[in-house]
Each structure stands twice: as structure tokens, then as C-alpha cells.
Computed example of a mutant assay.
Amino acid sequence: MPWVHEHYHVTADPAQTIVGGLSYGGLAAAFVGLRASEIFGNVLAQSGSFWWDKDPEEDIQQESIIQQFITSPRLPLRFYLEVGLKEDWRWIYMVGCNRHMRDVLVLKGYEVHYSEFNGYHHHVSHRGSLADGLLALVGKEPEIEVKDGAIDR
């Protein structure tokens, strides 16, 4: 983020900054929010792999991201979670684990926008809803302030 701020005119306000991802990327986005809420105040997780709780290389059980949110203090974060109703396969119940994550976050007092759609675990299923998530999290137009005749957003 320091490099981005140095090279681009973007906000440093966590309330206007989103980290997001799809599948494992959604899991990673939630983890980044948990560990860096002072930078990213919004998490957009499309079909987050919230079922994951072990290192596949070493088969070592680790604390799931859901459990980490249960045991951590509430942070200044907002969430957009979505999952396709046809995403369940083998032993992974994507709908259930995303609903569980949503319920935990709501019980902890987080603002959560949640959506289910009639689709599969594929980037094509999420392409239209990415904008929905962005708008839900920071979709309002920033207030315009005039300073010395110049517009500042």
C-alpha cells in the first residue's frame, strides 16, 4: 500500500479501502481485514473458502478464519459476502460455511451485506456481482468540499 499511495492519488482512509477476492482469495481478504483493519476497512469475499482450516502441505490443523473472528475483538470492518447456491461439491459445503461466516460476523456486531445467487464456483458467476459488492461497501459519492476555490474530494 505505501507504493500505491506514492504512485497514485488514492485514499488512505480504511473506510474507503477494500480488500477482496474470490474463493481462497475471499478467505485471504478476510484474513487481511482481520490483521490489517487499519489499512483495509472493507472486505469483499466472493465465495470465500471459509471451510479451510488446515495446511494442505503438512496436514496440520489450524484455527479457521471463522474461529479467529469469534475469538478476536470487533474491528472497524464492513463485509460483503456472496456465494452461489450450486457451489457445493464433495465434502465442501460452500453455502453453509459462508452462511456460518455471515452469522458469526453479524453476532459480533459487524455490518454485513450478504448475497446468494443461482450459480457455480466460477469467476463468470461473480463477474456481475463484483460491482454490487463494491457499491454495497463504498458506493456513496464522497462529499465535495471547496477550499480556496478548488474542489477537494
Rank of each mutant, 00 (worst) to 15 (best):
E58Q: 10
A131Y: 13
R35D: 11
M101K: 11
I65P: 02
V146E: 11
E63N: 07
Y93N: 09
G21D: 05
A30Y: 03
E6N: 14
W3T: 14
Q16F: 05
H7P: 14
G96Q: 00
V95D: 02
P2H: 05
L105E: 00
F117I: 06
R153P: 12
Q67A: 14
H126E: 12
K147C: 11
Q61N: 06
V138E: 12
H7K: 11
E141L: 15
D55I: 11
P56N: 05
K86W: 04
R102Q: 05
D13T: 01
I60P: 15
I65R: 07
D148K: 05
K147E: 14
A136R: 03
E57Y: 12
E141M: 12
G26K: 03
E57C: 13
G149L: 05
V112H: 02
A30M: 04
W91D: 07
R90A: 14
V106E: 08
V32D: 09
G128F: 06
V138T: 11
G128E: 12
G25Y: 04
E38S: 08
P76A: 13
G33A: 12
V112S: 06
P73F: 08
E143M: 03
Y80L: 08
V83R: 07
Q62L: 10
Q67N: 12
D148Y: 05
G25W: 03
I144G: 03
D59L: 15
R99V: 11
G25P: 08
P14N: 09
V43N: 02
G25N: 06
V112D: 02
K54C: 06
S115V: 11
A12F: 09
E87K: 06
E87P: 03
H7I: 09
Y114C: 01
V112Q: 10
